[in-house]
Simulated scan of single mutants.
Amino acid sequence: MKFEKIKYRDRKTGEIKEEKVPGEDYLKFLYYKPFGKLALESLVKRKFLSSLYGRMMNKKKSCEKIPIFVQENNINMKESVKNIEEFQSFNDFFIRKLRKGARTISENTEELSSPADGKILAYENIDKKDQFFLKGSKFSLGEFLRDDKLAHKFQGGTFVIVRLAPSDYHRFHFPASGSISDSKKIEGYYYSVSTHAIKKNFMIFCENKREYSILDTKEFGEILLSEIGATMVGGIRQTYIPETHVQKGDEKGYFYFGGSTCIMLFEKGKVKIDKDIVENTLQGVETKVYMGEKIGSSVKLSH
């Protein structure tokens, strides 16, 4: 398979843009070269490497990386609660909180919000997702959830992927209001979740470290919310209180250093994802979204 630059559509302007990927040559080597694959399987996917890098990003010395990272990735620090000088480590910067009003949460309860800043793909039927990924790349909900009964509940439902790049805001939030369960952890590897890697192997979602919880909502039924670990992600931290009622836009948790992914699963016939997102997905193009932005509606509202 040919290596191609990651392209996405800017939702506000409609333009197709090329994503600037930190370490892109490294990803090209790991996922598209024979010797790279050897390194990937023997070293990179293992927990200790990501944990080691995560610890390095917790040290005070790692603050030296912040100004360069901000400049190279055009990060708007006016949105951040803290100034650059106030961060105690690179990870402290990476999990920065945003000022009130930096993101707009849709107030309409029948509208679904993006849980995070990132690039989105959406499949209205999880069984038909190979327009973007390799044909024949089998994805099993049972393997992903390690629970066949739960997998059956979401079979034929809507599958939404929000991919966070390293330069994105790395806290994730609730896409709707409802009652939230505890988070179930599933141990796994630490493959990259970059589009470069996922295009080669969609099963990464079933192989990587991940967590999931169920948000029981009035408007969308039960939504399965899953967070996926990845190469150089030092950890997934849930900050919500389980078995409570949460509001749309409330913080659910955050990822430590590295790009990662939020996945949402909906029962069949419960949500209508916005047309532009679905059409872009069918064309093999991700759409840039921001936390709180409308990405869909309840079936009731869309009729």
Rank of each mutant, 00 (worst) to 15 (best):
K7R: 09
I16S: 06
E19F: 02
D25S: 09
F35I: 14
L40W: 06
L43V: 15
L49M: 14
S50R: 04
S50L: 10
Y53E: 00
Y53C: 04
G54V: 09
K65C: 00
I66Y: 09
P67M: 12
K78F: 05
V81M: 12
Q88R: 11
G101L: 06
G101E: 11
E107K: 05
L112D: 08
L112G: 13
S114I: 10
P115T: 14
D117R: 12
K119A: 04
L121G: 01
L121M: 12
L134R: 08
F139Y: 07
G142W: 01
L145K: 01
D147L: 03
D148Q: 06
H152G: 02
G156L: 08
V160E: 09
V160Q: 05
I161C: 07
R163D: 07
A165M: 11
D168K: 13
Y169V: 00
F172S: 00
H173I: 02
I180S: 09
D182M: 03
S183I: 09
S194T: 10
S194N: 14
M203D: 10
E211D: 13
E211S: 14
F220N: 10
G221M: 15
E222F: 12
I223M: 11
S226N: 00
S226T: 12
I236K: 06
E243A: 15
Q247E: 06
L265V: 11
K268R: 11
D276K: 10
D276F: 06
T281Y: 08
L282I: 01
V289T: 09
M291F: 15
I295V: 13
S302D: 14
H303L: 13
